[in-house]
Simulated scan of single mutants.
Amino acid sequence: MLTIRKASDRGAANHGWLKSFHTFSFANYYDPEHMGFSALRVINDDTVEPGMGFGNHGHRDMEIISYVLEGDLAHKDSQGNIKTLPVGEFQLMSAGSGITHSEYNHSKDRKLSFLQIWIEPSIKGQMPNYQQKNFGQDEGLTHVISRDGVGDTLQIKQNANLYQLILKDTKHAELKSTSARQYVHLISGELAVNGVEIKSGDGLKISDEKLLSFSSLSDEPIKALVFELP
């Protein structure tokens, strides 16, 4: 079964310094039909104005993934990590028993655009942890996050996987999955997944499908995130 979550149907928030689209219920946006999908709880498409950001705040028992689309994300947390996340790199912060952090756009003239993703952990109360890595821009599917950290992937505290999908000259890719559910978030281009067509910003909830077939439908390069979920 494949169900489209259209970009135009997402929740929206405009705080002046921050514009955000919420795939699932978040903050003041509440929709009982869209509370998450399996362990995937949040996908926020955030745009932060120059010199602005999220002040120091806390999290607990959540796996938080950030992926920058434009600009640079400045990160600082209570574990002593002071990092910059540029375009194309993945950040995974395991909040565990509790962590505080801030996220800022320190540029004076460039906007920051990034995806903020939350996945509920299967193990709670663990020591907080921070990971960051650039997996490159190879075409096809690149494994970036796994439960066991296999193949130098970032390690998440959930039975979940995350892949980066890029299609340029190559127009097709496939994923054989043993997971109960999958979710695709399309960042750019137009894409068919098992024949179902989605556009930039759309999501696709998937269940009872063991083979995912991805086909580019546009001249624009395809970039998407593909989740395998419990």
Rank of each mutant, 00 (worst) to 15 (best):
K168F: 04
R147C: 09
Q164T: 07
A173C: 05
A180G: 10
D169F: 02
V144T: 05
E174M: 10
N129I: 05
D148T: 15
G149N: 11
G125N: 08
I156V: 13
H143Y: 12
S179R: 14
G125T: 03
I166T: 12
Y130D: 02
I166E: 11
D152P: 02
V144Q: 00
E174D: 13
G151K: 06
K171P: 03
Y130H: 10
E174I: 05
L186F: 11
G125S: 06
G189W: 06
A173F: 00
Q158G: 14
K168D: 06
H172Y: 11
G140M: 01
L154E: 02
S122Y: 08
K171L: 08
I166P: 05
S146K: 09
Q126H: 03
F135N: 01
Y130P: 03
D169V: 05
I166Q: 13
K171F: 02
G189K: 08
N129A: 12
L165M: 04
Q137Y: 12
V144L: 02
L154G: 01
Y183E: 13
Y163E: 05
V184G: 03
Q158C: 10
G151R: 04
D169S: 10
F135C: 07
A173G: 03
R147S: 13
R147P: 01
A173P: 07
S122N: 12
L186A: 03
R181N: 13
V184D: 08
H143G: 01
D152S: 07
G136C: 08
H172T: 11
A180S: 15
Q182R: 14
S177G: 07
L141W: 09
Q164H: 09
G125F: 09
I123E: 11
G125E: 01
K124A: 13
Y163W: 14
Q182V: 04
I166R: 15
I156H: 00
Q132Y: 03
K168T: 10
I145C: 02
K176T: 13
G140D: 00
L141E: 10
S177L: 08
K133W: 00
L141G: 14
A173L: 04
L141V: 11
I156N: 03
L154V: 09
I166N: 15
Q131N: 07
D138T: 11
S188K: 12
K171V: 03
A180Y: 08
I145P: 07
L175G: 05
L165K: 04
L154F: 02
T178C: 07
Y183P: 03
L175D: 10
I123Y: 10
S188I: 05
G149Q: 12
D138R: 06
Q164P: 00
K168L: 04
K176G: 14
E139G: 00
A160Q: 11
L141T: 08
E139Y: 04
L154R: 01
I145S: 06
Q137P: 00
L154D: 04
L162T: 05
V150E: 14
H185F: 14
T153H: 06
L175Y: 09
D152K: 09
R181P: 12
R147A: 15
A160I: 08
D148H: 14
Q158I: 12
Q182K: 10
V150I: 14
E139D: 09
